[in-house]
Amino acid sequence: MRASDRISLIDKMGRELQARFGYAEIDIFLAHYKVEKPQCVSTNSKWVYSKEALRSVDEATLLKMAGELDVGFPTGSPAAIGDPQNWIDTTDLKMFISHLSDHRDKATRLKECLASYSISGFVAHEDIEPTLEWQAEIERALRAMDAFVAIHTRGFSESVWTQQEIGFAYARGVKIISLKMGEDPTGFISKQQALPRRDRAAEKIAEEINSILAKDERTSAKLQAAKRKILDGIPF
């Protein structure tokens, strides 16, 4: 991480901690990551207090803390060019899986089930290594994706990050699939019929997503080509 990016990230994390918590809660948050609370901070500012505590935290821990706070790098950063790490050299159809961090287990399970259909899912809280600039990696995935699925669990519409991801996908014009799991889609995508979860397991949801993508003109050719690559590599 560049020194300027580190300074910017710590500043944003400090402001987020200031907005969310009191001093006691900030200390609990720091202790969770084995970060010692600062000593002899001369100003009565939770922002300054938090920044002082974060100043010497190692990069991997700092990025984990930033991920929990949903704080990252500036949108449009030059670092967000290229493919994310897990899509480098893949021939699969690339699907961004938008989800709340509390439900990353559902996103990861769906990703695992989609893999058998030559669909490579991107799950932010799983596919970003601790040493990578996490928001830049998310932007890479949003720029590189062929399709987008949103897991609408309760509170999804209230997350700034998931709504930005949807806006990115909508502006790019990629195929968007809304999976309803407790909340209806809102905003621009509310007019599109959502895919209901009902009582179906992830395997069945993945099967239906594959069917939807196979019929859509924006994704059908890419999906067929990805599956053909798999077949071509199987010995007779």
Rank of each mutant, 00 (worst) to 15 (best):
M1K: 05
S4R: 06
R20A: 13
E25M: 05
L30M: 13
K37A: 08
N44W: 10
N44F: 12
Y49R: 04
K51N: 08
V57A: 00
D58G: 10
E68V: 11
L69M: 09
T75N: 12
A79N: 06
A80C: 04
I81C: 01
P84D: 04
P84K: 00
K94I: 07
F96I: 06
F96V: 02
F96K: 03
L100E: 02
D102A: 14
H103F: 10
S116L: 05
I119Y: 04
F122Q: 00
F122I: 00
A124I: 04
H125K: 07
E126S: 15
E129Q: 14
T131R: 12
E133L: 11
A141W: 09
D146L: 02
A147W: 07
A150S: 15
H152C: 15
T153K: 06
Q164M: 15
G167Q: 00
L179K: 03
L179N: 07
F188P: 06
K191P: 00
A194W: 08
P196M: 10
R198A: 11
R200H: 15
A206K: 05
A214D: 09
T219G: 11
A221C: 01
Q224G: 00
R228D: 15
R228H: 09
I230W: 08
I234M: 07
P235E: 05
P235A: 09
F236C: 05
